[in-house]
């Protein structure tokens, strides 16, 4: 009974803002000190990417995007042209992501 109650609690009452992406930024020396991390929709019907939010994150810094379940693109770029791109699928959990910047 207890197990059923616990299960019911988790299934029925997902906490607010519980889904999304939590990440940190790693940059090699040749990249700049700060990255802009962008999150956009990744849907077939959007031939052009629909930008939802972006945030500036220092090297080693952390960020979190609170997202509805769905498919997204996480892109990061910096002033020196270093980049990162990953397509992610968000479900009801928080995905952990390491944004590893790479030089061109």
């Amino acid at each position: 009974m207890k197990a059923a109650l616990i299960l019911f609690t988790f299934v029925s009452f997902p906490s607010w803002g519980a889904s999304g992406v939590k990440g940190s930024v790693i940059s090699p020396k040749e990249c700049s000190g700060t990255a802009m991390v962008w999150v956009s929709l990744d849907k077939d019907e959007y031939k052009e990417r629909l930008l939802l939010m972006h945030t500036e994150v220092p090297v080693g810094g952390t960020f979190q995007f609170y997202l509805k379940p769905g498919n997204y693109q996480i892109r990061a770029s910096d002033e020196k042209g270093c980049e990162f791109l990953k397509r992610i699928k968000v479900d009801k959990n928080v995905e952990q992501l390491q944004v590893k910047m790479e030089g061109k």
């Binding site: 802009m36 962008w38 956009s40 929709l41 052009e48 990417r49 629909l50 930008l51 939802l52 939010m53 972006h54 500036e56 892109r75 770029s77 002033e79």
Partner: peptide, 19 residues
């Protein structure tokens, strides 16, 4: 700013606060 030049290359709605 530098990020706007880069954002312009990828996102047609860069000049809006979001969707």
């Amino acid at each position: 700013p530098w990020w706007a030049y880069q954002g312009n290359m990828y996102y047609p709605n860069l000049h809006y606060p979001g969707a």
